[in-house]
Design a protein around this nucleic acid. Sequence first.
DNA 1: TCTGTTCTAGCACGGTCGTGCGAGAAAGTG
DNA 2: CACTTTCTCGCACGACCGTGCTAGAACAGA
Lengths: 206, 206
Amino acid sequence: MCPVPKLVDHEARRRDVAHAVWRVVRREGLDGASVRAVAVEAGLSTGSMRHYFDGQADLQRTAMEELTARVGARLAGLDPSGRPPEVARRIVAELLPLDDERQAEAEAWFAFVARARTDEAFRELANRSYEGLRALVRQIVALAQGVDLEMTPDAEPPEVDEVEVERLFALLDGLVLHAVQRPGLVPAETLLAVVDRHLKGLIDGG
Amino acid sequence: MCPVPKLVDHEARRRDVAHAVWRVVRREGLDGASVRAVAVEAGLSTGSMRHYFDGQADLQRTAMEELTARVGARLAGLDPSGRPPEVARRIVAELLPLDDERQAEAEAWFAFVARARTDEAFRELANRSYEGLRALVRQIVALAQGVDLEMTPDAEPPEVDEVEVERLFALLDGLVLHAVQRPGLVPAETLLAVVDRHLKGLIDGG
DNA sequence: TCTGTTCTAGCACGGTCGTGCGAGAAAGTG
DNA sequence: CACTTTCTCGCACGACCGTGCTAGAACAGA
């Protein structure tokens, strides 16, 4: 009856393998993310991965959850100080694939979202992210129109024009989609120019 | 040496099977569009389909081409008369999934586009459609800003602000993406309200 | 009728997949 | 050292897939 020796950090291992899933998904699509392919990418054997994942569903779901957690952590780490319109611009810029790392995340993310349409296992997480992003965009619209979120309670969503929320939300998703669809052909300056133009109209109009 | 008897219309048959592909893709995703599944959906046997398609690649590519042809035909059939801003609004409304038929088309379309990112066989057609839509959106922006396209030669694209083109293009793709992502939860009125708001800003600002 | 062509149906092969399993290596404790 | 637990590896099974193939049905002309 020995005290349990912990040889490897399971959580860290699961995270590493999740990153391997992202790379495979980006390169070959979610269909190509077979257990064998991910094992090769992660430098493991298929049998070895079974000690950390219950199966392919657990593997892919974990990779998707890790992705949302990563994006969420980056958003939570943003500097909330400054005039409201400047904060709004900062958050928007964080949502765009302005560098390679976020481009890779966006490409993998859309693969998961695409599958969520026909696979229940991914749907709930996709819907939660969708609602979370919509709430964030609602705050961005409020910020752009000069509302200071520090003054309003977190529980209550700010009162804003829902048409403008959907307009900005769709614009952002469309920009990311275009960057994903044509990697390297949508420069960062274009993305920023478009959102700056949009935010300008939002500020002037509100 | 008989005169060749033509028992079935090959083109019509290929079209019917392509529609069966759409239904399977909508229901189970592009991964689920196996030759066997499409054969069942179309009421044929796998061996019988080989008389009309060279293989799975031909099958899926044909389904995607048929989809672009269908959308293109609908756009070509639009009434081009009226004041430019009204024509612009008419074209935009045609691009949105306002009824079940176009919703189904949009869902299948995004499945093909998603695969095009990692599968060369679909990439060329996806890129062509992307460029075609971008050119169309450029014309819409010109129309919204009062330019009468009848006065400008077809060969030369209208001179418009490319930032506005990308902004409207991304907005439209984002709206369609949201409708695809959450079927039934994005009502037609919302889609129209958003594009009307956007076109209004485009007209006033230009 | 007979003949040649088109079309249909389904089987069989080779390949990939997810997954369960067991043997052996590695590491920590007595 | 022995002993237990953790970890790694690769094989094997059954399922599904794309595809080639063959035998027969359906049909148009002679």
